[in-house]
Design a protein around this nucleic acid. Structure first.
Length: 499
DNA sequence: GACTCGGTCACT
DNA sequence: TAGTGACCG
């Protein structure tokens, strides 16, 4: 069933079963619509397709209709999309212009592979849909890397970012320092770090230990005696029920009893105890397992019990040398070889623009600069690593891929669980400009609050508009936090291996 | 009675 | 240098 990951076969079988009933309901539901255009269907499953058909109906009002006269390439008649003689099949349906066909992919296959095949067959209107629950699998495709606007609010363009603080009042000394950092960054633009963060490793570890907990809402608690114990980790299944470690606007944390009330079926796992205290060694060693895998691709720096930074600069450069990303062919080859694209994914929607040329342009992007290409390689490597981690440890993890640790960390949790987020060139400005100060590492506490309350700043953009004198007057720029802020923001945050 | 508590960093 | 506080997860 195509080149999917280990989940594909299983999910496809499930999807097929659901497909039969789904088709039934589609015909009933859309049967009274007037047919103005033939909708050719290639699919071997129809998971939640009805929703999408309805959506399409709204988008392409009157032009997209489910048609009884479908050719089903399904079951024993299955032919892979890329192997179908589309010219002949279209003619059989009286369609002469393939550019007027809308292709709808819901097959959880490599989007790049499909895009290439579709373009080759003359199709120009393509929608990719994917609808598995997040966290079950992962997915990655080029637009993530090459389309700066695709990932909202993330960008990396140091000179432009500096423009944010164009106030001439910045102390010349500080300015010089900043410039030197930027200069440094310019040369090291080749440097790339990324952060991978193990998601809720405590519950994941417990779920791996006890198969009965897998897929079940689970929390790890300590000090079971009072109100069910304090929550130290919450699985994503449990989060779906509204269980969380901290309850917003209420000073107390959620405890075991409260979790049980919100989610009666929840599993409370007692954290291991040694000498009367919580012993997290089990979870630490789980992290070590992951780091051991990541370390094969670059220097690792453990940031916390469940987070690690990985410097992929060399690995990315090497990949780029071996397979320059100038041609889509190379990208396709590498991407396919990397075995990341075939994995079913969290919901990703992409649509080629009306003109086929734009579509191809999106792919080629030969103007994409070297840094972005490195990021692209980094993203591919990370996807590979995450697959490997999943296979070898059963843990899923999220990752941020960026040119410095601060940005990587910042976005690593933007899409989760089990997803990765790339910080392409040209979006950092928007991100930082709109980033609430408290989201910035080290500004999550009192200092961040003071900045908001005293100076009225809401975003990093606001903050950067303040002069050095003002900030110094209020807080003193020489505090460690402040120095770290600048360093992490502007520099590559040189890796310090602690493994 | 109870908002986890231990690691890390910066400062003194 | 040991002690303290902020921050984090």
């Amino acid at each position: 069933m195509g080149g999917g990951g280990p989940h594909s076969v299983e999910l496809s079988a499930q999807s097929r079963r659901q497909g039969a009933s789904e088709v039934q309901s589609l015909e009933t539901h859309h049967g009274d619509r007037s047919v103005t255009h033939r909708f050719l269907l290639y699919s071997y499953h129809f998971l939640r397709l009805s929703d999408w058909i309805a959506t399409l109906g709204a988008i392409y009002e009157g032009t997209c209709i489910f048609d009884r006269n479908c050719t089903y390439l399904d079951g024993k008649d299955f032919v892979d999309f890329g192997s179908i003689d589309w010219g002949r099949l279209l003619r059989n349906h009286g369609i002469s212009d393939s550019e007027k066909v809308l292709i709808f992919f819901d097959d959880h296959q490599s989007e790049l592979k499909r895009l290439k095949q579709a373009l080759k067959a003359g199709f120009r209107h393509i929608i990719f849909e994917d609808n598995y629950d997040t966290g079950t699998c992962d997915h990655y495709f080029l637009r993530h890397i090459y389309d700066p606007s695709y990932i909202r609010g993330i960008y990396m363009d140091l000179p432009n970012t500096l423009d944010i603080c164009k106030q001439p009042k910045i102390l010349s000394e500080k300015k010089a320092k900043l410039s030197s950092i930027v200069q440094d960054t310019g040369t090291f633009a080749l440097a790339l770090s990324l952060l991978a963060s193990l998601i809720i490793c405590f519950t994941a570890v417990e779920q791996r230990r006890n198969s009965a907990l897998r897929g079940q809402p689970t929390v790890v608690v300590q000090y079971n005696g009072w109100k069910g114990g304090g929550l130290i980790a919450v699985s994503y299944e449990a989060r779906g029920f509204g269980v969380k470690r901290r309850v917003p606007f209420i000073s107390s944390s959620m405890r075991g009893d409260e979790a049980k009330r919100v989610c009666p079926g929840i599993n409370l796992v007692q954290v291991p105890v040694a000498r009367g205290k919580a012993n997290l060694n089990l979870y630490r060693s789980a992290g070590v397992e992951v780091v051991a895998i990541l370390a094969s691709k670059g220097k690792c720096e453990r940031a916390s019990i469940d987070e690690v930074y990985l410097d992929l600069t060399d690995a990315a450069k090497e990949m780029l040398l071996q397979a320059p990303l100038d041609s889509p062919e190379g990208i396709f080859m590498e991407a396919t070889k990397s075995n990341i694209l075939g994995l079913p994914a969290a919901m990703i929607y992409s649509e080629c623009q009306r003109e086929g040329k734009e579509c191809e342009g999106m792919l080629c992007q030969s103007e994409a600069d070297y840094q972005d290409k490195l990021l692209a390689c980094g993203a591919i490597i990370v996807a590979q690593l995450r697959v490997k981690v999943l296979e070898e440890t059963q843990f899923t993890c999220s990752a941020g891929i960026a040119h410095n640790k601060m940005l990587a960390k910042l976005v690593s949790g933007m899409y989760k669980p089990a997803q990765q987020t790339v910080v392409p060139s040209s979006s950092v400005q928007d991100l930082l400009a709109s980033l609430p100060v408290k989201k910035m590492k080290q500004l999550g506490g009192k200092l961040g609050s003071s900045l908001q309350d005293d100076l009225g700043v809401e975003t990093i953009g606001d903050l950067l508009s303040f002069t050095e004198e003002k900030l110094q007057e209020q807080y003193g720029v020489n505090t460690g936090v402040w120095k770290r802020f600048w360093t992490d923001t502007w520099s590559k945050s040189a890796m310090i291996s602690t493994v």
